[in-house]
Simulated assay, not measured.
Amino acid sequence: MAGSTQIPYLLRAARGEVLDRPPVWMMRQAGRYMKAYRDLRDKYPSFRDRSEIAEIAIEISLQPWKAFQPDGVILFSDILTPLPAIGIPFDIIESKGPIIDPPIRSQEQIDQIHPLEVEKLPFIREILQALRQEVGNEAAVLGFVGAPWTLAAYAIEGKSSKNYSIIKGMAFSEPAMLHQFLGKIADSIAAYVCYQIDNGAQVVQMFDSWAGQLSPQDYETFALPYQQQVVRQVKATHPDTPLILYISGSAGVLERMAQSGVDIVSVDWTVDMAEARQRLGSQMKVQGNMDPGALFGSKDFIRDRILDNIRKAGNQGHIFNLGHGVLPGTPEDNVRFFFETAKQADKLLAVHA
């Protein structure tokens, strides 16, 4: 184990300490933009093999750690990973993404969904324990889960969707059935978060990726109460583990995200960071939010964007990240530069003041 007794830097930010620079990691930092990952993908073409065979998932999770030393190392997995453990099988097709067949469309199917059987997810325990062992206190180990609305959207649509017409149809014509489904998923996701924490996750990020597709009033009806249900259940037994909520396209529901009970709101890049902090209030900690597309720019451009973001966020309660996952095709050298620059932000800001 990395021999150091200090508190991981990312956890210090999550506790609200005033820091010289923000901790930095990247959503999807393990993945297709890295040559090491693509080489491994050629060897193991099935995504589920890569994410569910512990030794492969451990290796993938650690690729960015070895290359860039981020302040957070996140479990390589998928938000759909726990679904088979509640009775919903899925597959991931390389070019098409996740497929759930048959999709969940009837009361009878919802009745058959059972509480999470964590014994069906032993690889999650193995991966998280190995990551903690490997990084010690040099970085925080992050777990992650999908939020109820987003998991329900996948399960009901049967695949990724552009307009979410099937789940919205159910929401607006058979709401009682959908609420029952969301409640069952929320209970299982809460159990899954606790399982990750018990096995080494020091922070857990909940992705409600598709909740940004809801109007504010529907967000309050179909997404927020179930985020709150997950957070409430986790905090009952693990009150000190910081929870992060991320939504893609969240500008319209930013203040409502803060009502979920999470400790940190992860902001996408469509909101100016200074405005996000103002809207969320000084007590709410934030993560984000540089446009991943900025990493296709020149190094001067990348540096200026990083410093602008960090300056706007201030020196307390900020974890620096992208506003979404790093994009395939992003030059690895620019990712390296992103981490190096963020880690020297205090010195660079003094020069560029």
Rank of each mutant, 00 (worst) to 15 (best):
S165K: 11
L182F: 11
V265C: 09
A294T: 15
F207L: 01
Q202G: 13
M284D: 05
I247V: 15
K168V: 01
A201K: 04
S165I: 08
G297R: 10
Y226V: 05
V230F: 03
Q259Y: 07
D240V: 09
C194P: 01
A201G: 10
G183S: 15
D187V: 13
I166N: 00
M257T: 09
G252W: 02
M206T: 03
Y192C: 10
E220P: 07
P225S: 11
F172H: 13
S248N: 15
A176L: 14
S160H: 01
I167F: 00
V267A: 05
I167Q: 00
I189T: 14
G169Q: 10
D291P: 09
M177E: 07
Q228K: 15
P175A: 09
S250A: 15
G297N: 10
P175L: 08
F172R: 07
S161E: 01
A201D: 06
F296S: 10
L254Y: 03
K299A: 10
L254A: 07
T241E: 05
M177A: 13
Y219D: 11
S260V: 12
H179W: 06
K285G: 07
L243V: 08
A211R: 02
D208A: 06
I244N: 02
M290H: 04
G183L: 07
Q196K: 12
S215T: 12
D240M: 10
E275C: 07
S266F: 01
G200H: 10
V265Q: 05
S188D: 09
L214Y: 00
L280N: 08
A211I: 06
D218T: 10
K159A: 13
M177R: 13
L178Q: 03
Y195P: 03
G261A: 10
K299N: 11
N163E: 11
S266K: 01
L245H: 07
I166G: 00
I185A: 11
P239Q: 09
Y246W: 12
Q202Y: 07
A236N: 11
G169R: 07
T241A: 13
E220F: 07
F222D: 00
R232K: 15
Y219A: 12
K168M: 00
G252A: 13
Q217K: 14
S209I: 00
V271W: 02
G297K: 08
H179E: 13
A251Y: 05
G288E: 03
Q229R: 15
K159G: 03
S266C: 05
Q278H: 14
Q283L: 12
K168I: 00
M284W: 02
L182C: 12
L295M: 04
D263A: 12
I185E: 08
V253R: 01
T221Q: 15
I185W: 05
D240A: 14
Q202P: 10
Q205E: 04
